[in-house]
Design a protein around this nucleic acid. Structure first.
Lengths: 208, 208
DNA sequence: AAAAAAATTAAATGTCTGTTTAAAATTAAT
DNA sequence: ATTAATTTTAAACAGACATTTAATTTTTTT
């Protein structure tokens, strides 16, 4: 009675709507996106959106959850790995996030903007707290700071690490104007950044 | 005929509307802000908004321009100063921006979000391009990298400098959850950051 | 092939939103 | 003190918007 539809071989209407929603919400945010935009982008009747997802907000929540998990998901694996060193973790972090953001440049601005609007939707990310505070990475970071007699709060370093990787994508429109950067050059710099980030981080740990 | 109103001793209706608009636009962005919200916040009739500012968009443009200049204005002075060293400039940059953002934490997310929506409104910031590429700061940065045989693109360092100062405010909701940070602690860390930032930047310059 | 279920559509619904109108209240000019 | 200009208000307006309805088409089941 519910879903006997079996022969959904190629892309289903439901998935087409979701994809269009991803695109529009990421590009313009929740408030500026019209359900008509989504319907047009998906090539469907507006009523189908409510038929499949009940409401604009429910559809948005689905996309938001998916993106939050993309953003926070891999972090766990990287930071809890027992056999990698601190700087190897930093290198893996840079690799993973810079590749992710090159593929989806609007991701961080989308997440931070929508989180400002309703911070309660952060629930799915609370697992990250443990990753930052109790993971192998956290231990190694504290140990390394202690070894260098560096009294800085470890969270300062975490902020910086994230900022060094993510900020260029948040500030991209500004940076491309003030730097006179074209898309290809920006992408090339982000690739260079994968290499720079662990070097920088190592140097920062020793800067007392 | 135009404005014979002389006795505007205390705060005028026009300024009340502007202040309410600043608050609401910064908090929720253009698309999510209702002119009725602004009117209520200012304690005025909705029609007065159009009476004084013609339209929601014109009012927004006023606020946007003001904030862009706040964001980009002081940069010029700091970065073109002839008598300060590179690291002194970095220290001044950190001081100025961290204080600015502690007073207006929503500023960067507001600017970056709205800039994504309409990048053409960046016009007033094109002066910053010269500051980054042709200022005394740019010279000093290139010289310092050369002296350290550091082949990194100077723009990489500019991105990082901005990111280290600004990113914590962009990611604040996320950081406060994953770090378990209260407002006071966050503010204290930003103060500590004023000191850390020049140290870090100095170390990064030497990290080849 | 007939019946039932699911998917799709056009049109309508009611609410929200930015803006305008026209009248009233206040302030300034004569 | 009148008159004119400015400011403020309540109400209306028109278009945008998300959602619903009811009918039609397509697909699945029997």
């Amino acid at each position: 009675m519910k879903k006997p539809t079996a022969a959904a071989l190629d892309i289903s209407t439901e998935e087409r709507i979701k994809e269009a929603a991803r695109k529009m919400f990421l590009q313009k945010g929740y408030a500026a996106t019209r359900v008509r935009d989504i319907a047009q982008e998906a090539g469907i009747n507006i009523a189908l959106l409510n038929y499949y997802f009940r409401s604009k907000e429910k559809l948005f929540d689905l996309v938001m959850l998916e993106k939050l998990q993309q953003f926070a998901g891999e972090l766990r694996h990287i930071m809890q790995e027992e056999t990698t060193s601190l700087l190897e973790k930093v290198a893996r972090f840079a690799d993973f996030y810079i590749d992710l953001l090159l593929a989806q440049p609007e991701l961080p601005l989308f997440i931070f903007s929508e989180l400002r609007a309703n911070p309660e939707k952060l629930a799915s990310t609370i697992g990250v707290k443990k990753v930052v505070q109790e993971s192998r990475f956290a231990e190694q970071l504290r140990a390394e700071l202690a070894a260098n007699h560096n009294p800085a709060n470890p969270l300062q370093l975490v902020m910086s690490l994230m900022g060094l990787a993510v900020f260029p994508f948040v500030a991209r429109p500004l940076l491309q104007v003030i730097g006179g950067l074209e898309d290809a050059m920006f992408a090339a710099m982000m690739q260079e950044r994968k290499r720079l980030l662990p070097q920088w981080f190592g140097a920062m740990l020793k800067a007392v």
